[in-house]
Design a protein around this nucleic acid. Sequence first.
DNA 1: CTGGTATATGTGTATATACACCTTTATGAG
DNA 2: CTCATAAAGGTGTATATACACATATACCAG
Lengths: 172, 172
Amino acid sequence: MQNSKPLKRTKQGKSPKPSKLAEETAKAAREAGNCVCFNVRKTARLISQSYDRALKPHGLNTNQFSILALIGAVPEPQTLSDTARVLGMDRTTLSRNLRHLNKAGLAQTLLDGQDARTRRLALTDKGWTVLAAALPSWRAVQGRTLAAMGPKSWPALRQQLDHLGQATAMAG
Amino acid sequence: MQNSKPLKRTKQGKSPKPSKLAEETAKAAREAGNCVCFNVRKTARLISQSYDRALKPHGLNTNQFSILALIGAVPEPQTLSDTARVLGMDRTTLSRNLRHLNKAGLAQTLLDGQDARTRRLALTDKGWTVLAAALPSWRAVQGRTLAAMGPKSWPALRQQLDHLGQATAMAG
DNA sequence: CTGGTATATGTGTATATACACCTTTATGAG
DNA sequence: CTCATAAAGGTGTATATACACATATACCAG
């Protein structure tokens, strides 16, 4: 159970007089509850759990499902970098996420005929099968989510999220 | 460079005839671009990079900043579980995130006088100092973000995110 | 008191995420 | 052709994330 270090004990009775710095900083810190980044990340954490549970019977999590769906959605195999861009994901992150999908036999990385540097992404037969099987589960959780949030509000929310992603690039 | 496995080559010239399954699934997969979970996660990835850069001079990332700010914002040390709940973070995730903050000497985990099971979270003096120093950087990036997205739209967006987080709990 | 249950937390494991840096290949200037 | 530079991708490292499971403690019914 123990976390290695010896722990102090919270003082009982009168709470210690906070330092001047602490007093001012505590007040300012309450602003940070309004942090855009924190609130988006928090929502991402919460909603991911819901989608992960829904996709679990297919051996996928929401991230893997999104990658498979994107690879499957485009007619010709795209490069790793382009795919990462569409996913809003760092190239190296996608590279590593693909390892799991490769190992699971769901996705394949193909050489390009023109450029020896580039890799192109495609689904395997098994990948198509798993994706096809997972889609109804995704539709179900997506439907429940839209219903719970009021389906009308999603288009506006999505637009704002897109806008925020773009704005972020601007804002540095 | 190589990823161990021998890679196939994308076929040149005429593209292969897609299977019936692939054809239907590809069409369905395009729906998934509208996935609520994917879009929230994507925005979270993008915006996090911006905040991480802004906080980097203080040795913090956006997640660590949020945790410090929350610990600092409440008057009395709260339990780990309660703190995790407010952060919308799994208890065990917070537990591990705290290790870094403990090791860095920014946060401390205190024993509770009443209940030997519970741990309460507080900032160290160094934690107060670092948080105080980081707050202006956070205000700056938050300000840039709000400006770039149109400051009027944030309150509504935040409300929708909160709602979505709640809805998620309902939707299973 | 004692055993059963609930609560608070830590661990094992798997995956996600991105920056800094490196290698390989393409491309263009001369 | 050759070298400089750019572009595509992989690796090292650090952190984030959560589920399943394990441990320690509290608390309550009998």
